[in-house]
Write a protein that binds this DNA or RNA. Structure first.
Lengths: 211, 211, 211, 211
DNA sequence: AATGAATGAGGATTCATTCAT
DNA sequence: TATGAATGAATCCTCATTCAT
């Protein structure tokens, strides 16, 4: 293992560090308000150094995008072990929400932000991953129908519907709009619990569709 | 493009023009990335002119916010004539989607953009309207339960769940993420139809909850 | 009295109002930080109206300058009735301080501000008044010597010296620098009293010069 | 040796250059009217560069302030060697005037400019130095009384009075007001001599207080 | 590989001033 | 006479980016 390898390792580490710092800052301050300077400060390097690893701000977002999808899909892949498809579907929902709550910044990057600026083309590419995620959902829904759930419903439409519900819950939570309404009438301060409860209610509506 | 021509345009609508321009830009680029300069350019006035009509950037968002909610609530109020609560609920869903599709920019302003920092206080005020909208939904859901729907489910949770589904559908559509997935597999070019279809599927899931 | 006359009267009034407003604002905020808009607001006219009466901001300062000197000289002229020249000298000092304390803005305009911008030429003209004021002082000092005061001292030099003392007291007070030092060690909150006391001490030094 | 040191030197030089440019502009145009742009232009750098060396405009004034007081106090400290307090007092006066004449811009910064608003707190700090300077004067006056001068006069009041005279002379000279009057009647072109003469006259008045 | 220095472009605002009405 | 509307130029300041070292 020569010096070269160690250097390579270090290089990879630093790239990761930049991403991590950027992710945190995006969450805290939002994309626009996050400056390269701030990222550099966080990792205790000079701004110029960032440019040795990423061409510009866009490329950082781009990288986060890819990582984000990879992470989400990995959350789903674990669930392949669940054999009952409806159980798997429920678990997927929970995993999705969990992912969104744990990585609100990334979530928004993937599903809320219109594809950042010049990188539309690249983003399309990234979205092959996004499609894969949807495929997993679709397949699971179909399998549910195979064991008697969701009779008479179109699998694709239902998948869209389910995804929408998940997405709606997550974004209303993340953007704080859920908080507004909830606080206004809330006997419930903990919004994460609230989301959990709402999700279980939603699952109940799906469950009742069997009969 | 000279001074004369510009003046010929109805100056009295300038305030509205500013709002319209701002609305479009906020949607396209986001709040932070929209500069007063850009708004001014769009309406072909000088930046300073904007300040004759609005104190600052926040006041513009504020105005759009208010207008937006007023419009949405007006969409709902028509539906008071529908006596059957479940029919009314379905109609509300359609009205909500219709509103979002017709005014994607406003929709995002109301339900996607994190409310601009300093005006949180004011925004809370604005959100009394938002709360009202939610109240209407909640009341309708309760009435549905009164005639046998949604047995055993918590009205508030279900309302959140329904709102989330609607919101998810609308935002996935507006931000173009629905398009990505759909186009990838689409035998279906018209996304608005797709949304309609997905909505009907969702309604079907709700309908089946009776039994 | 025709309409013309009344109009003329009104016109004069308004010019004065503008000056008064400007004067107050200059005092409160300083010259640079006082905007035409602010002046206009204070007199409840539109900014454009100001320009009907004064060509620009400089002309306003110019007018205040002239008024200021006229006012100061008028303060002095009253004292002609005091026959004893030393008494008159002492009274002049008090009048000078009084003037400065009552009109700190004007005082600074006359004696601190380097002549504003383009109006140097005009200001020189204005200073004929300033010279007159100094002449009055010089004449008084000479008369004092006539009755035995200030033996062996050059009248002009002494006059400068006296003026400097007065000016120094006034400006240290006005700019707040006296306050700094005084507060630091003061058992004396009222700076105007302090200035009075310092003046009396100074007078005492002059008085003792007789013998 | 080489590069590093030279760079460091250059950096220090630039900081000084900025201060020098700022000092001149502040004096010429006043604090408010001096823009960062103007300073940048004067040193032939871009405005943004200024911000690499000073956080903002206030920090520049702050730095000038500190430097200024340090310089003034250093002028005074030399005089500790003069054992006769009255001689020392006279020397202090000359030193003060000398300082003001050599550094009119700094002098104004320290004693004429109302301290820039937000930095009052910091300025107070700076003024510990100013207080020290006054303390030195006060102590000297007291010592003079100890050897028979200024009988029956309050030391603090007399100190204020003396400071005022010095300050008045200096500012009338610096702002050009002395010139106005002097030139008008001058058999005396050299204002610095005039100030010297006026000072000696003043000293004479103090001297005569003994008897 | 890393960075200190530098900058051009652009951010929100403010203001003196003009001009048609 | 008075002003509403408009603007160019200026304010301070921030930031992504480059480049010589």
């Amino acid at each position: 293992m020569g010096v070269t390898e160690r250097k390579e390792r270090h290089k990879e580490d630093l790239k990761k560090d930049i991403l991590t710092a950027a992710k945190e800052l995006f969450t805290q301050k939002g994309y626009e308000s996050t400056s390269i300077r701030a990222i550099a400060e966080k990792i205790e390097y000079s701004p110029a150094t960032i440019y040795l690893y990423y061409k510009d701000k866009n490329e950082i977002v781009h990288a986060l995008h890819q990582d984000g999808f990879r992470l989400l899909v990995s959350h789903f892949e674990v669930l392949n072990t669940v054999s009952n498809p409806f159980e798997r579907l429920k678990a997927m929902g929970r995993a999705y929400i969990h992912f969104a709550m744990q990585n609100p910044d990334i979530y928004q990057l993937l599903f809320v932000m219109k594809e950042p600026l010049e990188h539309v083309a690249n983003c399309f590419e990234d979205w092959h991953e996004g499609d894969r995620a949807f495929d997993i959902l679709l397949k699971t829904v179909s399998e549910c129908q195979g064991i008697g759930y969701f009779k008479g419903l179109d699998a694709t439409m239902l998948s869209f519907s389910i995804w929408s519900t998940m997405h709606g819950m997550c974004t209303l939570r993340i953007t704080g709009h859920l908080g507004h309404v909830a606080i206004a009438r809330a006997n419930q301060l903990d919004l994460d619990h609230l989301i959990g409860a709402a999700y279980e209610t939603y699952v109940a509506t799906l469950e009742n569709l069997t009969t």
